[in-house]
Design a protein around this nucleic acid. Sequence first.
DNA 1: TTGTATGCGTTATCAC
DNA 2: GTGATAACGCATACAA
Lengths: 337, 337
Amino acid sequence: MAGSATIRDVASAAGVSIAVVSRVINPGSGPVRAETRDRVLAAIEQLAYRPRTAARELKQTGAATTLGLVLADVTNPFFARLADRVVWEARSRGVQVLLMTTQEDPHLEEEALATLVSRRVGGVIATPTATNPDSWTRLRQLDTNVVFVDRSLDDVPGAHTVSIDNVRSARQATEHLIDLGHRRIGFISGPESSSTGRARAAGHRAVLAERGLERDDALVRHVPFRGEQGGDAVGALLALPEPPTALVVANTAQVVAALRRLRLRGTAVPADLSVVVFDDDPWTELFEPALTIIRQPIAMLAAHSVELALAEQASAADPRSIAVEAEFVPRGSTSTP
Amino acid sequence: MAGSATIRDVASAAGVSIAVVSRVINPGSGPVRAETRDRVLAAIEQLAYRPRTAARELKQTGAATTLGLVLADVTNPFFARLADRVVWEARSRGVQVLLMTTQEDPHLEEEALATLVSRRVGGVIATPTATNPDSWTRLRQLDTNVVFVDRSLDDVPGAHTVSIDNVRSARQATEHLIDLGHRRIGFISGPESSSTGRARAAGHRAVLAERGLERDDALVRHVPFRGEQGGDAVGALLALPEPPTALVVANTAQVVAALRRLRLRGTAVPADLSVVVFDDDPWTELFEPALTIIRQPIAMLAAHSVELALAEQASAADPRSIAVEAEFVPRGSTSTP
DNA sequence: TTGTATGCGTTATCAC
DNA sequence: GTGATAACGCATACAA
């Protein structure tokens, strides 16, 4: 094939100048006689010509054409579904999505950001891993929209945030269990370094205080998002002198590990332990008993994120923090103690 | 911020020419005095200069920097995990991944391909949706490596294929069930238009023939990858005058729908129906009973795919078809009838 | 309505 | 060692 056709090839094939071809390619950018356009179109067709995005980006004309999506873990069904929706939303606006995964590794995150910077993407949607404020701030300084989704970072000026109201959702979970009669409630959450982990734990504590229940910090476990530590946390909780009768797993990534451990121990759900989970993987419904869940409105999260990421830079001065409503779905895994 | 720094800004800041800066940026591309380099490096640091990928791509120098990943459905955990590994493999080679989802829609696939063409990506890894041979062939004509993973298309000359040996895996599943004593085995597979659907059904049929079992085409259901039709297929099978005592769900995407239907019907697994499934979502282990599965070696699929996608064009003349070995994992969902 | 010329940011080929 | 300068493919003022 010897390299694909360029705008010049088309021009000479159609017997016109490249300016005319350009106008044909970008309708509305200038006048072209119908007859001429047809000739150009024919040449384009014949040569299978497709304008190169790289060249267009260089001219940095028009709106952003690419969006960066920095996810902590695509293996996590929640993030996978989020990715699916983000791609969908972006595509409907003619924007492509560059996917990067950090595996919860700050170093990989740093690399991902470097790439996005060098690509001058129109915006970045991310589930930030660690406090890498410098890198994020550098991105902001390039006039790149930054949208944190699900989790957020405090120290990045001008960054938007989109997530559920984690405090509220954690409250719902805990209230539900207290209403059922539980008094000792275990809580497995994300790392304290994560906004999500903190907010969920805070909502939990708030309800305990309101209801006049004793607060036992031994019942709250902060575990990393990745890995099998959700299982260990469950083990530790049940090994307490006075173990909980209910458990909130406020950490999408740790649900499977936690449940596997329960299964291994032969702990019956909900007879021995009621369980509420932050996740809406379809499998939660197939688990026996079906799990009581907090369902995150993934489509909403994605829609808001993409919109903010693609917004005009006017928004830079006014970083928004959007909280969408999660849905509490009581099912079989929670009952009276 | 007024636009980020360019190579010229760095050059003047360091008091050198842009050529020197370029050599500093691309070590090995030419000599630079140590002292000069330090000055340039300082300027780069000070201006937060980052070379623009678009400009580099324009010069089309060096190896590919971007890879296209066209997936049918990121919501499907199998594809999500595949995406995770592909991104990982690509990143380890300094290549970024452009993710596109087709939702099993040929029209969306067509759009995705158009984008990849205009980006001149180094290679494309895809789970092709429909027979869009023209679009794929056009891609090939641009000297773009095309790798079909999981599924494949016959009509695209020069395209590589990476998948498990679907015939063999389907054989294993069926043999396992026959060995347990099953004689009527239901089979839910992907569409007949998909290579995967055909191969799995073929493996199944082959075993039936070898073992001298009657072949009843009513027991084989081809359902679309997306949607809830896996449930309907189960319903139809169990409504047969002589229903099967075992079921192979050879379709990653339909597992959940099928199991949900079984649950609704109150069909006991494995007492009423043994079940084997093509999927290795962690949840299959938590399902009660744990599901007998065929586990696809996702890391292998990804590694081979990326390698082929990034290979030099010499490979174009010699399209490869790599079959990696899947693992049969017998668990609790299969037993004697 | 069409064509010419210039620039986008980078790399590469030369001279110096 | 270093520095002009010509591409790369495209868009666009401006001239014709």
